[in-house]
Nucleic acid binder design. Sequence first.
DNA 1: CAAATTCTGTAGCGATCGCTTCGGAAGGAT
DNA 2: ATCCTTCCGAAGCGATCGCTACAGAATTTG
Lengths: 178, 178
Amino acid sequence: MLFWERGYEATSIADLTAAMGVGAPSLYAAFGSKRELFDEVVQVYGQTYHAFIARALIEEPTLKAGLDRMLREAAGAYTRPDLPRGCLVISAAVNCNAPEVEQALRALRTTDLDALERLVNVAIDAGELPAGTDARALAVYTSVVMQGMAQQARDGADRGDLEAVAALAMRAWPWTAP
Amino acid sequence: MLFWERGYEATSIADLTAAMGVGAPSLYAAFGSKRELFDEVVQVYGQTYHAFIARALIEEPTLKAGLDRMLREAAGAYTRPDLPRGCLVISAAVNCNAPEVEQALRALRTTDLDALERLVNVAIDAGELPAGTDARALAVYTSVVMQGMAQQARDGADRGDLEAVAALAMRAWPWTAP
DNA sequence: CAAATTCTGTAGCGATCGCTTCGGAAGGAT
DNA sequence: ATCCTTCCGAAGCGATCGCTACAGAATTTG
């Protein structure tokens, strides 16, 4: 979880071995390289701490309810006192001289954005949003809010601040009258 | 401007001297250290590429017009083809092992956020927003949108995408009827 | 109990980091 | 022309980077 807090490059092998309580050779025997270890960490992170996004959007019956839950849960997830602030996928590869690592996380973000755009289009087809709504704009807007919330969490915003942001962000959507 | 593109730590002295076409001793004679050079760069950046924010908010007669202009200009400023994407103040010290540098940029962001909150309070007093409006929530929300736009610009969003985001973001505000 | 195998912790590899020292070229004064 | 000052590029300083070779401990096997 040091990768989450400090990012990929700012976390050294010495930091990792000290935190894990193992020697460097054991680490390399188990994972092969720093990059492979990071890939492993990203995968675990995705299944553990990033999954609330897909869960919220899938489990709720309407896009509006899913987005509201996603943003509200993000406010909590990004400010948990027992975990690093913000989001590993968003922050860990910023200012990273390893292009492959930066690209890997960027690809994850792009995947989320495209999935969001598809869900918006589904909601348009279902009449939850007016025909002619700009699905990509709403998807990018939602990504902007999520990424901004993660950044603000790192800058010290607390859960209440971000929940208020989540509520405000929902007001921008052009829902059809319920 | 390498600091803008790659961040503080990911930019090495060798990168800087190569880009400037001078030797390392000249650089140290002129600026003292990498950190002092960065401070200088941040100051120039603030006066040159960050000033549109204060200009938009000050020069427009209403907060609504100022925010609209700020967000719209941010869409352009963060995606200029002749400059690095996004914003140095937001990105350059992410995942930075030098706490003083990270704190310096964080302080700039906090200053902007507090100034925004004051402007929202002014607008509430002026009747542009309803009494009882949560000024801090709106200020944090606006920072979230600006930081998220900067991040999305780095992820490849183009100017049109961000202008659409700017227009959407404005819809969240509880303006009193004009 | 002894021998063989796996594992772990230390030390060190080359490369690069921020930064500094030093030799030699350039230019002005006498 | 000679001397002196100024400046700049190459080389190198200790520290740290990701990574690995090797010795000794621990464990398994006969």
